[in-house]
Design a binder for these strands. Structure first.
Lengths: 332, 332
DNA sequence: TTGTAAGCGTTATCAT
DNA sequence: ATGATAACGCTTACAA
């Protein structure tokens, strides 16, 4: 059996309070006493029982991250960034997938094990961006709507920069792949706006046949929609895909038709997945500041957990992006 | 505040033991009493406090999965499979990355929060296969070495089948990419053995220049080593890569040289990553039975947790593989 | 500077 | 069939 506080106390010949004080670096302990306790801890190999501590303090040191699926590299890389950030805050991460059998029910039961949660999207069908952070219902005051922080990226500005990058290359017939015609909010509409702003600033009229809607932001739909675009005989010399998966799909469709990238068509994506570095050709993309988003979201959540009595106001933060130039938009 | 057992007891006019009995479906409760308790639970919105339960039972319902990094799609997909399996066993998964700052120390402190752990590799530099399962030190008897179960895949047989698949296509100069010359155990040596068995069975002599060593099983090294192979002017008409990342890298190197796959060179990988379906051309590969490995490992761990008093003997299980034919080995 | 003791919310042993 | 009550191992008033 693992040693307990009282085992250590017995050996050191002190009370458990003193041992506890030593563990918590309580200032006023006589050096000799402290040493005796330290020796006893050493001798017994004592490790505080976290479960007991949790019961007492009401905190677990665990946060959950809810993502649709880890199979999608975007979420896998986000998860990695969150775990790194959590490590720095001394928190552990319980990952949950929201796409899946009993999503809601399972999450509710696990909500008790965590101090707070991070969501990568709000709804099931929404591919929103960034991270939402809120206290676990257990810690939350519980009254009314929970306070949620949001850390996000510059969707519009980044796609605008991507589009202007192609325009700067002399491209004039630039397709936007990934539009969601119905959407009035969310990543798709923000990114479409950026595309439009770039065209407008360049004095180019938007052509309906170049704005390509897709059902999902996957490689599959990226390839299918690009194929359709080409099959329709639409003239294209540039493609701004609303994420890397779509761009990778586009690359595949272009390759299959024997269309050379970047000689005939320039392609740029959004996300800066590891994969994009290794595609053929390597994909130019927007690096949306994933590490920073993860770090800030975890930090804000940690603050919220620390200040659980005095609820913090909800905050919204937006982080800067960078444009990464690779082969797919090299100068012809 | 959340309702507790005694809140419910007070409202139902019974003792907390009775409420506890109702919650645990204890057989002998008078229907009327049971109903009163159920109503009180309903009225208060009572949910058992998991932390308190954990303290009492000594189990947390959480297991950890240790992977080098989630950025590697192989581990991301493995993690997904583990989480799905854990869901079915009513367990939550705490993911930890072993590559990283304070790997060991961090893990030790978290070991207390979990009932058991799953490792995807034993050492830092080893890319072993399958999953190892063992009880958390806290639950473990603690005496001597911990008992660990191992669920793995048919490394040798699968690569042999992959190689024979290429031989069946009429390929005679088949390169093996991913060898680890020094290794006498681990995935690399098992897979190399399969390659050799296939050549031998076909009566083909092994050519040293076709067995290509790499430092890491990444797309990067796959591309680099293939490039080197081609630069040396070695004749090749088939490539068996020891994992999909290497194969994807090989595809890139071949593409860059203008060598057509599968017309001039057939390529097959190992892992069946989602990505392989979308490469250009789509990659033939070995599906190693990841879902089954995850399911079995989680199941065995769950059994071990359930039987914590009577330690179960260590078990070794190997699951079957399947060969997935795609474009990269289509008949010319 | 250190000790005593209450309590976190369960589960489970004993009575009754 | 149900109720008191003692743990589980910790944190923390409050006392000494």
């Amino acid at each position: 059996m693992a040693a307990t506080l009282s085992d250590v106390a017995a050996i050191a010949g002190v009370s458990i309070k003193t041992v506890s004080n030593v563990i918590h670096d309580y200032p006023h302990i006589r050096p000799a006493t402290k040493q005796r306790v330290l020796d006893a801890i050493e001798a017994t190999g004592y490790r505080p029982n976290l479960t007991a501590r949790n019961l007492r303090t009401g905190r677990t040191g665990v946060i959950s991250l809810v993502v649709p699926t880890l199979r999608n590299p975007y979420f896998a890389e986000l998860a990695e960034a969150v775990m790194d950030a959590a490590d720095r805050e001394g928190l552990s991460v319980l990952i949950e997938q929201s796409r899946g059998s009993d999503a809601g029910a399972a999450r509710a039961s696990k909500a008790q094990l965590v101090d707070g949660m991070l969501f990568s999207t709000l709804g099931p069908e929404q591919e929103d961006t960034g991270l939402y952070a809120q206290l676990a219902p257990t810690l939350d005051g519980g009254t009314s709507e929970p306070l949620v922080d949001h850390v996000t990226m510059r969707n519009t500005e980044a796609i605008r920069a991507a589009t202007e990058h192609l325009i700067g290359l002399g491209r004039t017939r630039i397709a936007a792949i990934g539009a969601r015609p119905g959407d009035v909010s969310g990543a798709a509409s923000l990114r479409l706006l950026g595309y439009r702003q770039a065209l407008e600033a360049a004095g180019t009229a938007e052509r309906a046949e170049l704005v390509r809607p897709v059902a999902t932001w996957t490689r599959f739909d990226g390839a299918a929609e690009t194929e359709r675009l080409l099959a329709e005989g639409v003239e294209v010399d540039g493609i701004v895909a609303f994420n890397d998966a779509l761009a990778l799909g586009a690359l595949r469709a272009l390759g299959q038709r024997g269309i050379r990238v970047p000689e005939q068509v320039s392609v740029i994506g959004f996300d800066d997945l590891d994969e994009s570095r290794y595609s053929l050709p390597a994909l130019s993309t927007i690096s949306p500041g994933r590490e920073q988003i993860a770090a800030l979201a975890v930090q804000m959540l940690a603050e919220r957990i620390a200040a659980r009595d005095e609820p913090l106001p909800a905050r919204n933060i937006t982080v800067p992006f960078t444009l990464v130039e690779r082969e797919s938009t090299a100068r012809a």
